[in-house]
Amino acid sequence: MLTLRRFFATLGPGVLWLAVFLIVPVAIMFGYSLLTRTDLAQVGGPLTLESWGRVFGYDALFREWVPDNLRVLGRSVLIAGFSTLLCILMGYPLAFYIARQPARRKSFLLLLLIIPFWTNFLIRVYAWILILRPFDLVPSLTATFLGMVYAFLPFFVLPVYSSVEKVDWRLLEAAQDLGASPIKAFMAAVFPQTLPGLIAGILLTFIPALGTFVVSDILGGAKTALIGNLVQNQFGQAGDWPYGSALSFLLMGAVLVGLWLYARSAGQKGLEELI
């Protein structure tokens, strides 16, 4: 039984901390998204939906739809989507490979996968400059894709792996026994079992890919600007906090909705296994 006293002795301080430094700032961010820019990095009233309008392409100043923003949004989704697809191509078979190794080798391979995942994101992206510069590929779209896939591949493989490890291979034999060809048997018996991991992996890749600004900033240049870059710009040179807030809130909303949908289908355990 969780009484108030016990709550404050264990969960309380941490939850309080997250409330102050996570929930309150996000609430403030939402509040700011309803204000207007009065000066560089300054905000003021009255309450308005202008920034939100701009997020979806409506420019209040010129009173018309300006497709530029939408283009960035669309490009973000496309680049993130394509990067995710590349991750699936590279990572899905890898997860199978790891899951089917003997136990000791498995944990070694997993460690090998986790190490780049924990090394500095910035450095990992930066290292690609060293490789691609001789080929004159920095900045370019190709470099952005490479950097994206490289940065997010471990996020994808880990949840898929944990799904693959739980696969009941007898179903594959059963399907073949019932006359299915190897590929058909795989699609019918194994693929559906990996679906929860696959969905988690896609979420974990697509979402950060959508939000990153470092990859395109370092490897892509202006032509590959994503939502993340747009946000960074609003809090940097442009100094338009309300617009940046709205963009950033949209980004977070997409994440949380995805996470919520995932939690609903995968439940408590799935949510914990996500990490």
Partner: peptide, 28 residues
Amino acid sequence: RFRLPLTFLLVTPIVIPDVVMGVSLLMF
């Protein structure tokens, strides 16, 4: 019964894009 929302709260800082966390703290 707060277990699920609690886990959700804990997972949030891990999954939200760090840009979002950065700028929201900047404004905070």
